[in-house]
Computed example of a mutant assay.
Amino acid sequence: MKNKNVDAVKAHFIFSIKLVCSLLITVTAAQANDSTGYVGTGGVEYIKNKNISMHSEDLYISKDKIRVNYEFENLSNKDITETILFPMPAIPSFTDSDYADTNATYDSFQVWVNGKLINPDLHVRTFMRPIVVKDGDRTYSETSVDTTEIFKFCGLNEADMRGPWTYQVETEYVNQRLLNCNNKKLDRFIDDREDPYIDWDSQVIYSWEQKFKANTVTEIKHTYTPLVGGSVHLGEEQFADFCVDASTKQGLNKSGPRPYQALSYILTTGANWAKPITNFKLTVERDPNELVSFCWKGKGKVKKIGPTTFEIKESNFMPTHDFDVAFIIK
């Protein structure tokens, strides 16, 4: 596996002083170029607080589970209370059949604080792309805008808006409510009120109030089923994304198309803390009938610690790259 930075759209685990909408709208999701339909979740982001550091991060990644154990240390002599946010990515209302299983991720999220299971609050936001004129043609902006309040004005509640996550509300129902809604603000996003297809995204956010006691380490753990996608063939155009090594390339070229699955995890937000991460460990586990390939751009070495398990350890870690991993059927 060689080092190469990868570019994927991922979700952020955001620690913030307030539930700020301007932060939420920066979290988006997109399908991979080969329509594998996977989007990333995870990662830790913090609005810099010089008094709180990430003492350790123990991250486990497999196709079935993401598990992260954090130790956050309050370096000050005063208690600090923050609102912690865990936003999932903003996913499209219409998805292909091979898109990641959003319902499994939605149902599986759990969080523990100092060993105690807590029940976080749940929020939902919607996003749409405004219509813009480009080179004389009407098209849609590449940047989405938060439209949650418009959806509410049109009589849609949070259960309706999180339908793409839960599969409990039909997208067609939401679209028809928007088409019938007498709100001029929708003209910015809907070009034809006779067209039943409307492009919008749904984002689920978990939150809870957290006290970091003075001069104390706070342990936070969360687990969930990752958003995993797949395709019938890992082509040469994806080799660089996952840093496929020479021997694996040779095997893939000889054997022909190989199905694979992939997931993404954001690491770079770990650089936002008061200090580098004192102790960082990443464990990746594959199935026995698979090969695994990913990029790593750190000082730590990738070690195989079991028949299907790989481990990386870093000290005083300042992450500069994110993490994409491919699980390739042998």
Rank of each mutant, 00 (worst) to 15 (best):
N5P: 06
D7V: 08
A8T: 15
F15G: 05
S22I: 06
Q31E: 13
N49W: 12
N51D: 14
M54F: 00
S56F: 01
Y60A: 04
D64H: 09
K65H: 08
L85V: 07
I91E: 02
S97P: 01
D98T: 06
D101V: 05
Y106E: 06
V111E: 03
V113A: 10
L117E: 08
L122R: 01
V133E: 00
T139D: 00
S144V: 09
M161L: 07
Y167D: 15
R177N: 13
N182V: 12
R193S: 12
I198A: 05
I198N: 01
D201E: 14
Q203K: 00
V204G: 03
V204Y: 01
I205D: 01
W208T: 13
E209L: 11
Q210C: 14
T216W: 13
E219L: 08
C243A: 13
S247V: 12
N253M: 14
N253H: 12
G256H: 11
P259M: 11
T269H: 14
G270T: 03
W273A: 02
T283W: 03
N289F: 12
E290N: 01
L291D: 11
G298R: 06
K301R: 12
K303W: 09
K304Y: 09
P307N: 09
T309L: 11
E314M: 00
H321K: 06
D324M: 08
